[in-house]
């Protein structure tokens, strides 16, 4: 199927899931999930719609065994906050999108507290096109003039954010869509020095609203638009926003969903992917030029939130179906984990 564009990582689990129906998410439920769902019976209910034709060859016992194997992971992360930066290919492909959303709802059902942070570059570009505004980039960053900023705010806060919220609602979660301006979650200052318009650097994060929502079992979905305190919206990098929100919530994990398998020694060979790295190893790989290009800001974002007390950060392949669950609930994981102590 075309929804798995990366042929390199055909793990046995993903191949069994590949043939699952892409619109499983729309299966109607008898009632919506309770607000504070935290028992295993709900886990089973959340996982049940995944069972499609491909899973029919597993006996009921097989399925229950697999579920019970996840117990230690569920126990380890129960009650912990996990900040997920959602973006890239996983955002464009509808079937991947549906899977990310169902993963998120499952995590929330088993008592883990996911917080989603998203950007939305391609969507912004397509609306800029429709309005006849030309998208400009300078050193990989979007040049954001006043007109562009209006579109950024509308698209991220309105369209992208609310479509994620409604997908989560449809699959039985309780999502609240916010942008960084709400309750000043993200305060930023304009990066005047870079001369690219209304692009901001995060100066402070106010996590109190997020904490309230998380404590009540809601899934916050935050668009990476920040307030400058004087009414001007600022466009901030979604990776950075996610990292700082994770730091402010003292999250257990920060997960960055990307379009690559992880940090690799040879960027064209997924078999050279690092499963786990320490800050020290990252610095050494940066010095050697092995971590280069677009991976540098991602790794630096991870180090920045690790140094503020986040326990572990993960750079995962968002193109893989159920990459979130693979990373969280299996030993091998699916991407690169960066943390202080190696596994």
């Amino acid at each position: 199927m075309a929804m798995v564009p990366c042929p390199s990582q055909r793990l046995s689990l993903s191949s069994s899931i590949k043939s699952a129906a892409p619109h499983q998410i729309c299966v109607s439920r008898p009632s919506r999930a309770p607000r504070r769902p935290a028992h295993l019976a709900v886990t089973a209910a959340a996982a049940a719609p995944q069972a499609s034709k491909a899973l029919d060859r597993f006996s009921a016992f097989d399925r229950v065994s697999v579920l019970s194997e996840a117990l230690p992971y569920l126990q380890r992360f129960r009650g912990k906050t996990i900040v997920i930066k959602y973006g890239g290919a996983a955002m464009k492909d509808e079937s991947l999108k549906a899977r990310v959303v169902s993963d998120l709802v499952l995590l929330s059902c088993v008592g883990i507290h996911p917080v989603m942070v998203h950007g939305g570059g391609p969507e912004i570009n397509s609306w800029l096109n429709k309005l006849g505004i030309e998208a400009q980039f300078k050193n990989g960053l979007r040049v954001t003039d006043a007109a562009t900023m209006d579109v950024v705010e509308m698209v991220l806060g309105g369209r992208v954010n609310k479509s994620l919220v409604s997908l989560i609602q449809q699959s039985g979660g309780a999502a609240v869509g916010l942008c960084g301006k709400d309750s000043d979650i993200i305060r930023a200052r304009q990066m005047v020095e870079k001369d690219i318009g209304f692009v901001g650097e995060v100066t402070s994060v106010n996590p109190s609203l997020l904490q309230t929502l998380v404590a009540d079992g809601y899934i916050p979905v935050v668009a990476s638009v920040a307030s400058d305190g004087k009414g001007q919206g600022l466009n901030v990098n979604a990776d950075t926003a996610a990292g700082e929100i994770a730091a402010s919530l003292r999250a257990e994990k920060l997960i960055l969903m990307t379009d690559v398998p992880g940090v690799m020694r040879d960027k064209d060979d997924p078999s050279t992917k690092f499963a786990a790295l320490t800050i020290r190893e990252c610095k050494e790989l940066e010095d050697q030029g092995i971590i280069a290009g677009g991976m540098i800001p991602k790794v630096d974002c991870c180090i920045r939130s690790l140094s503020q007390g986040v326990s572990a950060t993960h750079i995962i392949d968002g193109r893989q179906p159920h990459s979130l669950l693979m990373e969280l609930l299996t030993d091998e994981g699916i991407g690169t984990m960066i943390c202080e102590r190696p596994l």
């Binding site: 100066t203 994060v205 996590p207 990292g243 700082e244 929100i245 730091a247 920045r304």
Partner: peptide
């Protein structure tokens, strides 16, 4: 310096 997602060391309240 960054702590809890917030910059410290600039103004007197932070």
């Amino acid at each position: 310096e960054r702590y809890a997602g917030t910059e410290f060391g600039g103004s007197s309240d932070q």
